[in-house]
Design a protein around this nucleic acid. Structure first.
Lengths: 195, 195
DNA sequence: ATCACTTTTTATCATTTGTTAATGGATTCG
DNA sequence: CGAATCCATTAACAAATGATAAAAAGTGAT
């Protein structure tokens, strides 16, 4: 439950994603709560109340939904140092529209989305930071959209490996297959070919 | 070039999408510029400067991108009364990341994204309005993602018809096919079956 | 109406992907 | 160790989709 070292703040993430001053960051830091999540735990569920933003410090997780047939469809994978989908894009009236599940044990930073919004309003740097996260979310989705619409499943697998090399030997293949838009049997076939 | 009736403001759109007071709306209205766009014109181009938000008053348009092979991939169709993808989601440093093309003659409202952001900051109603637009954009993409990942091309065609019935007899089929993630030949086959 | 041009449909064949079921390998638990 | 379980692979066949090219239909201009 407790984080090993409370002073080990993820300032590098911000330096990477966006240049933010120490002063702006300190306001943000005050909101942070460290949290551990066990493997397979679903820490945000469709229909449940959610008011948090999340930054992944360690491990892998995914967002997913059930399609009309009741199958789980993986939308996005997240890895160490990723900011998870912004609250505003995955909630309606503070109720979660997506599921988020830990694929490994996780360490994450959680902070209140409403308070973050207030910081965004009063602070230009934080506003730009938040907007960058939003844009990244959209760009990620657009890239996946293009891949699904115009690349073969093999090309998508190769790209997936490029981005999430470790995951393929770490999580059940149906989880990956639904992300790639194919069945797990097709994924196995492709694995045989590309290997 | 000129709009038929400058007083014919799209207040209904706001009433539909979001309950907004007359006071808040008047601040927004002050930013509006009416614009006509001819059929096939690309009114926002990848790599070009863009600082506008758009509301479509009449006609159909699309956003599209070139995939690595150089083929046009239609990402989204927009119809009368739609708010186009928010500026923040389709620009980087005020440069457009997407193409937007008129599929018919268009009437649209254009307004400055920076000034709109200022209104969002100072006015809760407008902020909620802007956030709703953003959420709709993400939900639209998520729905399409699920459709591409887990529905057949025929199911996607049926859903497309549901949403954009008129378009199929109005625009070139390759434009629709790339949206559905298939070739125009496959689309023609499906049309023969579903008809 | 005719011609030139573009778009859609149709046909053929190859490839990819889905479905179902059987097989084989791990892992866990008793 | 052996049974049970889970998961990935393989096989066989069906269905969907892609690629290419030719035919048909539609469009626009003169």
């Amino acid at each position: 439950m407790a984080h090993n070292n409370k002073n080990e703040l993820p300032e590098e993430i911000f330096k990477d994603v966006f240049p933010i001053s120490e002063k702006s960051f300190s306001g943000l830091k005050a909101l942070f709560k460290y949290r551990s999540v066990g493997k397979n735990e679903i820490f945000a569920k469709v229909g449940q109340k959610n008011n948090s933003e999340y930054i992944l410090l360690n491990g892998f997780c995914r967002s997913f939904l059930l399609n009309p047939e009741g199958n789980e469809i993986t939308l996005t994978f997240f890895k160490k140092n990723d900011v998870l989908s912004p609250h505003i894009t995955r909630t309606k009236s503070e109720i979660s529209l997506l599921n988020f599940q830990a694929l490994t044990d996780l360490e994450l930073v959680e902070f209140d989305a409403g308070q973050f919004l207030l910081l965004m309003i009063e602070n230009l740097e934080i506003r730009d930071f938040g907007n960058t996260i939003l844009k990244n979310e959209l760009m990620r989705k657009t890239e996946k959209e293009i891949a699904l619409a115009s690349h073969t499943a093999m090309e998508r697998l190769i790209k997936f490996r490029d981005e999430f090399a470790l995951l393929e030997n770490l999580i059940p293949h149906p989880v990956i297959a639904s992300y790639l838009g194919i069945t797990n049997v097709s994924l196995s076939r492709l694995r045989g070919k590309v290997k």
